[in-house]
Design a protein around this nucleic acid. Structure first.
Length: 224
DNA sequence: ATATCGATTATCT
DNA sequence: GATAATCGATATG
């Protein structure tokens, strides 16, 4: 009953398509603090978005869309609010959401989440104990980890409309507002590596990478 | 605590 | 045939 009510509230707070129909940078900033939800008949997973990276489409050398449309990156060129899932290093899936109107590429990579609901199921999906080394952090801190925790695969989720009321994967606003937010250089790329397009909730434990606070705030291109 | 390295495959040159 | 928006294990200070 209580869960039911929370569920309904989340449903109502599902972000609409127009939220994503903008430049990936402001969308990234506003995505911080929102809640990623996986909701099926048998499971409810919820986790707060604490780290994302903006990818700017054909003008961004580090973006998958930089060299134009292909079968793999087609979702990035499609309408806003859809899941772009790619497979990387022969090991991991990563989740993005498309931005900007149909025909214009752009997207946002989800890099870290803070578990809110269903941590036990996330641990199961990750194949690790809930109380093991690293604690809850290793469940969802990192793009490959959070995708595994949420059972995200290309087959299951690529192209999924995150703004469809019947989608089992969506993003909600639960009223939380991030306080200290910063932008830093993006992680793990070689091209256009110095642009400050990685957005983090600065004081959040689940932000990815070692020595988070010091390094991040020192290299922060701008405070938001 | 930081550094390096191997795994493993879809995608593109 | 090389590369990649990563992770986890192992080695070293």
């Amino acid at each position: 009953m209580r869960l039911r009510a929370a569920e309904n509230n989340e449903r109502q707070a599902m972000l609409p398509r127009r939220f994503y129909d903008r430049d990936p940078r402001p969308v990234s900033r506003e995505l911080l603090g929102k809640v990623l939800v996986r909701e099926t008949a048998s499971e409810l997973l919820r986790a707060r978005i604490v780290e994302v990276e903006a990818y700017l489409g054909e003008n961004d050398l580090a973006a998958h869309s930089a060299a134009g449309r292909t079968a793999r990156n087609a979702v990035l060129f499609g309408p806003p609010g859809h899941a772009y899932v790619y497979f990387i290093y022969g090991n991991h899936y990563c989740l993005n959401v498309s931005c900007l109107p149909d025909g214009i590429a752009g997207g946002i990579l989800f890099r870290a989440l803070e578990p809110l609901t269903g941590a036990e199921a996330m641990a199961r999906a990750r194949g690790i104990p809930l109380d093991g080394r690293g604690g809850l952090r290793v469940l969802t801190s990192g793009p490959g980890r959070l995708a595994e925790a949420f059972g995200i695969t290309r087959e299951r989720d690529n192209g999924k409309d995150l703004t469809n009321p019947r989608s089992d994967l969506y993003i909600a606003d639960d009223g939380y507002r991030a306080r200290r937010v910063a932008a830093t250089a993006r992680i793990g790329i070689t091209k256009a590596a110095s642009l400050p397009l990685r957005y983090i909730i600065a004081d959040n434990e689940f932000v990815s990478g070692p020595k988070r606070l010091l390094a991040d705030l020192k290299s922060a291109g701008e405070r938001l």
